[in-house]
């Protein structure tokens, strides 16, 4: 959208770090402030940033419509199925310890059983939701990039 060299180069430099930070927040949801929602929102924001500073096509190159819709359904489906796995293991729906998920030692990275799995699914879901919402609302405007920057 913006025809500005500085913005483009900066956002291209910064975007991978934002994505890495988002993934960190998602994966450490059970150890530090954060979790699936905040991490997913940060990850989604990086894709929105690319679409804003270049144009929509560049954003869609990062994550296509097909992939986004599969990820959305997949994230929610994975969450629901994790609950069903607990039933298969003999617990109630969405049970964690009582269904026999290995908890590990509290404070370690691989601890907390189903929480980590659910957090990852929620993170995927939120990241794809944020990008899809953004793309869908700005699509079918006048073709992007036709706006001449007037400054």
């Amino acid at each position: 959208m913006m025809d500005d060299q500085i913005v483009r180069i900066t956002s291209r430099l910064v975007a991978p770090f934002i994505q890495l930070y988002g993934i960190y927040i998602i994966l450490h949801g059970h150890l530090s402030p954060g979790g699936g929602f905040s991490g997913g929102a940060i990850f989604g924001a990086s894709l929105v940033l690319i679409a804003l500073s270049f144009n929509l096509e560049a954003g869609i190159k990062q994550i296509s419509h097909q992939t986004a819709s599969v990820l959305e359904s997949g994230g929610a489906l994975g969450f629901a199925l994790t609950g069903l796995v607990a039933i298969a293991f003999g617990g109630n729906y969405l049970a964690n310890r009582s269904a026999g998920f290995p908890l590990g030692e509290a404070g370690q990275f691989f601890s907390s059983g189903a929480i980590l799995v659910i957090t990852v699914f929620v993170g995927i879901k939120v990241a794809s939701t944020i990008t899809t919402l953004f793309y869908n609302i700005i699509e079918k405007e006048e073709p992007l990039g036709n706006h001449k920057q007037t400054d």
């Binding site: 819709s69 599969v70 359904s73 929610a76 629901a80 069903l84 039933i87 729906y93």
Partner: peptide, 20 residues
């Protein structure tokens, strides 16, 4: 038993799959 929650989850799963 698990029937009450299965009603809800069954519908949700079908909803997640339908658009795909």
């Amino acid at each position: 038993g698990h029937q009450p929650v299965l009603i809800i989850v069954l519908l949700l799963i079908s909803a997640f799959i339908a658009p795909l």
